[in-house]
Design a protein around this nucleic acid. Sequence first.
DNA 1: GCCATTTTTTCCAATATGTGGAACATAATT
DNA 2: AATTATGTTCCACATATTGGAAAAAATGGC
Lengths: 265, 265
Amino acid sequence: MEERDGIGASNSNTGTLGKAVAVLELVAMAERPMRFTDIFGRAGQPRGTLHRQLSHLVEEGLLELNADHCYEPGLRLLKLASRTWMRSDLRRFAAPHLQALHELTGETVHLGILKGAEIIYLDKVESRQAVRMASQIGRASPAYCTGIGKAALAALPADMLGPLLDGAELRRFTPQTITDRDALEAELAAIRSAGHAFDREEHEAGICCVAAPIVDAGHSLVGGISVTGPAYRVGSALADWAPQVRRAAQSVTDELAARLGPGGT
Amino acid sequence: MEERDGIGASNSNTGTLGKAVAVLELVAMAERPMRFTDIFGRAGQPRGTLHRQLSHLVEEGLLELNADHCYEPGLRLLKLASRTWMRSDLRRFAAPHLQALHELTGETVHLGILKGAEIIYLDKVESRQAVRMASQIGRASPAYCTGIGKAALAALPADMLGPLLDGAELRRFTPQTITDRDALEAELAAIRSAGHAFDREEHEAGICCVAAPIVDAGHSLVGGISVTGPAYRVGSALADWAPQVRRAAQSVTDELAARLGPGGT
DNA sequence: GCCATTTTTTCCAATATGTGGAACATAATT
DNA sequence: AATTATGTTCCACATATTGGAAAAAATGGC
């Protein structure tokens, strides 16, 4: 099969919808607003088709077309995501534990969830009430070079981990990034036996964290909790916090399990 | 034209996509996870069709189908929305002003934007680093009974305001909610001349706010900033803060205008 | 544990819907 | 004013969607 330019390579059979959301993602994930031709260049879709797709996305409020012919993500995405976030069981169960960890450490605490080979951040408790309040929520980072990501990968059964790593490119972000498959497997084994993972400036220079995995029944959902801070400040403390992070993650795991067992929906 | 049950009443000609996102919204906006039959009952779509739509949405990651056959909003929505939020010019320009207002008042500060007859909250600076950190972001509230909403409505030219109010039902939320069209028009006129709006427990009992409008060129984008707090605490202070709120909103308005004029993109 | 019932999923001919090349507008640039 | 770049519309054709009905799972009662 000949592969078209740009997007849509992975979409197998979601038909019209798949193409439309591929366009949506292309626009939403771009760094800057795109004009029609910019999108046309990357979408690998005929003019007429692309134009209609964009029109429909705009009419649905998923995109917006501003005065200078630039397509931008629409507000309806926010509205939809807001409900997703508020209703997440994982987030609700984890929230008090995140808060407790923050009060213990004084550092930033993250809750993330594994989606494919990426970690998507679901919640965050931050020290300074910074302006960029919820900036990380919904953000996606590669799993193999983040604390939560490695903890989650390590918690995955072998038959799910293998294919996932096969498909992932181990790109270098910093000098510390693990870019070798074997080294990563060794690291995951170490994490498995320790019960927690460290990120030693592997994703972002100067930023370290300690993380522990959260697992739902049948590994249908895997994620983790982390405590993050600047290397100079948390360097030695991370190891001390590990047990508490492990305990918090374990509590959430237990609560997720209990939800289906004794109680209701 | 006979109108079908449930969703899709307003979708005129977005074809397949429109129906799919209508289903998506139905599921995402529901209070609790829905099983197939629940959705079937409200979607007004034949079984086979609905099933394929849901399958596609799941395959695209916009919905997720958990172990007990319940459809839930998918993580991809968060990822998409995250970029929407981070890239918003309005949010970026407003952020420092929100922060300043929060430091001045010590109360919660909101940034919202008018979308149809609803206000969608774009940002928030909160006093206590509460657990419900970003809970309001992306949330939608009716315009006619919120401070930002009324400020935004008042800033709208008559030819846009009329149709908008015609389509909106003035539902009562509290004893103070304005449910009469004429009373609302009078209130908007008062807001127009004052330059700021008060919400005196009209949406939520015990909660008051003062708000001022933000307007982009040609009213293509209308929103506002508000300072919110419990009635017993902010009751008398709101009026004092009004000038500062007005000034902040005006600054953002100016910055939005300046963006297109002299400078860059 | 087995049968009756509900709920979910699959199938396929008919057809409405999306496709995409090319012609047509419109705005920007020389 | 002419030219180029950009955005929008059109329509014969093919494909994806439709929706009824029937099969397969799951659920619940006895």
